[in-house]
């Protein structure tokens, strides 16, 4: 057994900062802290959900893990190997093991390539040892596994609906047999009836292939369905990390509570009784995050200390929470 077998991916104090040209005649550069000190780990075969609103840094985080954007500081260990210091050639070998599925399937598939070519391409780049016939056989097998017909192989992505195009995206990611798949909002743009098809497909493929998923979404209901553990991000920082049931039944961070309260419930009697007034304010500019706790400007329980001191993630019950007042149980509890 490998030494680090309990963790496939371990991220420690990861920071991704972008420098933007500033205004004014001094032209002071502005620093955008898209990911600002994020730590978590994922065990093999598990699914870690990462949730937050737009601008929370979740997509930047996804891309940084695969080194698709430069990492400012911190550590990313994949199967015990440090990724942040690898050169391009070594990183290429890692990419066979860590693939990504994007939100908008039609925009992420080349319109001039046939389905067969789209799924073959990663093998050409990452598995040069395969012969042409072997590649062809793998493409057909992969297409069948994601629910595409063999006759689709010579068609173009734009001929497919969103759900089918996402199946092509999944086949392209899985054909090189990765251990880790980063799913960046894979069902957000799909129709309701298709969303659940794709989530079920991802779950089937996971159990058949022992895949590990990092499932990034702003949709808390699909994350609840697929993930065992959930990380809640706000302005590039981790607010709460906990097991699925703890996050949804007893959210401890005021931000997690607000996110869950905002999800509409498809039942008119329940929906009309709920208080949605817990949702307050707007996301501050990530260029000028509030001092202390990033969430304090929208938090109903903020006190002076929250403006002065940035809360660290600490264990409360079975959850890790970054809130000075987490013990006080100020928020609501969701039943069920």
């Amino acid at each position: 057994m490998m030494e680090q077998a309990d963790k496939l991916l371990e991220v420690t104090d990861l920071k991704v900062h972008f420098t933007l040209p500033g205004g004014g005649w001094l032209r002071n550069n502005l620093i955008l802290r898209a990911v600002d000190g994020v730590s978590f780990s994922v065990a093999p075969g598990d699914t870690l959900g990462i949730v937050g609103e737009s601008g929370c840094g979740k997509s930047t985080l996804a891309r940084a893990l695969l080194r698709l954007v430069p990492v400012t500081s911190g550590s990313i260990k994949f199967k015990g190997q440090e990724l942040t210091t690898l050169d391009d050639a070594a990183m290429r070998r890692i990419r066979r093991n860590a693939q990504i599925i994007f939100q908008d399937p039609l925009a992420s598939l080349d319109p001039r390539m046939t389905v067969g070519n789209i799924i073959t391409e990663p093998m050409r780049a990452l598995m040069p040892e395969l012969s042409r016939t072997q590649r062809h056989q793998r493409v057909l097998a992969m297409m069948q596994q994601v629910g595409l017909l063999p006759s689709h192989i010579n068609r173009y992505a734009h001929e497919f609906s969103g759900g089918q195009a996402q199946r092509i995206g999944i086949a392209r990611a899985l054909v090189v047999e990765p251990a880790l798949v980063v799913c960046d909002e894979p069902v957000s743009s799909l129709d309701v009836s298709i969303k659940s098809q794709v989530i079920n497909l991802l779950q089937n493929l996971q159990s058949e292939r022992g895949l590990t998923y990092l499932f990034i979404a702003h949709d808390l209901t699909s994350v609840r369905h697929i993930a065992q553990r959930v990380v809640v991000l706000y302005l590039g920082r981790v607010m709460e990390v906990a097991n699925r049931d703890a996050i949804y039944r007893q959210p401890r961070h005021p931000y997690t509570q607000m996110l869950i309260a905002a999800v509409p419930i498809p039942d008119p009697r329940v929906a009309r009784q709920r208080k949605v007034s817990v949702v307050r304010g707007e996301l501050p500019s990530p260029l000028k995050p509030p001092s202390g706790c990033a969430f304090r400007t929208r938090c109903p329980w903020a006190i002076e200390r929250c403006a002065l001191e940035r809360p660290e993630l600490r264990m409360i019950g079975n959850s890790q929470v970054a809130c000075h007042r987490a013990e006080e149980n100020l928020g609501f509890k969701l039943s069920g």
Partner: peptide, 24 residues
């Protein structure tokens, strides 16, 4: 089919989501 394929946050989670087969 539409109502059953939407997971609800206020109910217990099911192992599998119900779906409508096929495409729009």
């Amino acid at each position: 089919g539409l109502l059953r394929s939407v997971p609800r946050m206020d109910e217990d989670r099911t192992e599998r989501l119900l779906t409508i087969p096929g495409n729009p």
